[in-house]
Design a protein around this nucleic acid. Structure first.
Length: 263
DNA sequence: AGCATATGACGAA
DNA sequence: TCGTCCTATGCTC
């Protein structure tokens, strides 16, 4: 679930649901009891996503830093929905929001907030992000491009699904050294990140296939038809039919098509 | 019941 | 490169 698009969508939804009104905060699990008590009955002032990081600011400049990590979820629930005892944080406005399994959920000082942002590369979903910053992060880097794409200090918000899909869509082999990519390829990679992540926010889901390649109508697109290569090892490439391959890159599985993606 | 796995990131070795 | 953390799900026995 959580790549950059998820967090930006969450930021929007939380803002429209809870924004500018008094929020009730509790920690059914108890692990964030103190923090929840400090937020409780405050107003949500701002909601901001930066890559995979979510920052909620409450009245009094209290900054709540949330990072979902691999398994975290932050879901809207009906107000009467009883939180399970794994819910770290429950926010209640026009509906309830239940946070489970986050990698980070903490009230942080402004300096820490600035430090997190400072460590992040350009986020394709943020106004003001520049492709040149993305490109300059890759100059002289021999690291395979598939590894660079997971590095949040190079580009913020891309995760394991998008990296594989982007490289397929542009015909770039995942093991190509980052510094060997042409200017055009870097520009295309950036432009693709912007359009794909935006679409991800809109759909609240990652869908990279063209309608033509999926062979289905958009409304009824099945999960297994939404992607070109991610988790499709051994299956035929949607473009050329050759078998999708998989290997570990940066400790994570990466999928690609050897025929469509040239070294 | 137990185990593997997951769209992430960190620290230890 | 591993182990670790955090939770939910979907296998397998």
């Amino acid at each position: 679930m959580p790549e950059g698009h998820t967090i930006h969508r969450l930021s929007k939804d939380l803002r429209s649901d809870l924004g500018a009104s008094v929020v009730k905060a509790t920690s059914p699990q108890g692990r964030f009891a103190h923090g929840a008590a400090l937020i409780n009955k405050k107003t949500l002032a701002t909601s901001e996503a930066w890559g995979k990081h979510l920052f909620l600011t409450f009245s009094g400049e209290t900054i709540l830093h949330i990072h979902l990590g691999l398994i975290g979820k932050f879901r809207p629930q009906a107000l009467e929905h009883e939180p399970s005892d794994t819910v770290r944080l429950r926010l209640e406005g026009s509906r309830a929001w239940h946070l489970t399994g986050p990698q980070k959920c903490a009230l942080i000082p402004k300096e820490e907030y600035l430090g997190v942002i400072d460590g992040l590369g350009p986020d394709p979903l943020r106004r003001g992000s520049k492709w040149e910053d993305f490109a300059s992060g890759l100059t002289n880097r021999k690291t395979p491009i598939a590894i660079s794409l997971l590095d949040q200090s190079i580009i913020a918000g891309v995760g394991n699904v998008y990296r594989a899909e982007f490289l397929f869509l542009l015909g770039i082999h995942p093991e190509r050294p980052s510094c060997d990519l042409t200017k055009t390829e870097l520009q295309d990679l950036w432009k693709l990140s912007v359009s794909q992540l935006r679409q991800g926010v809109r759909l609240n889901r990652i869908v990279t296939v063209d309608q033509i390649d999926s062979g289905t109508t958009p409304g009824r697109l099945k999960p297994q038809d939404a992607l070109y290569v991610y988790k499709r090892e051994g299956q035929p490439c949607r473009r050329c039919g050759s078998s999708i391959r998989v290997a570990k890159l940066a400790g994570r599985s990466c999928w690609w098509c050897d025929r469509c993606q040239r070294r």
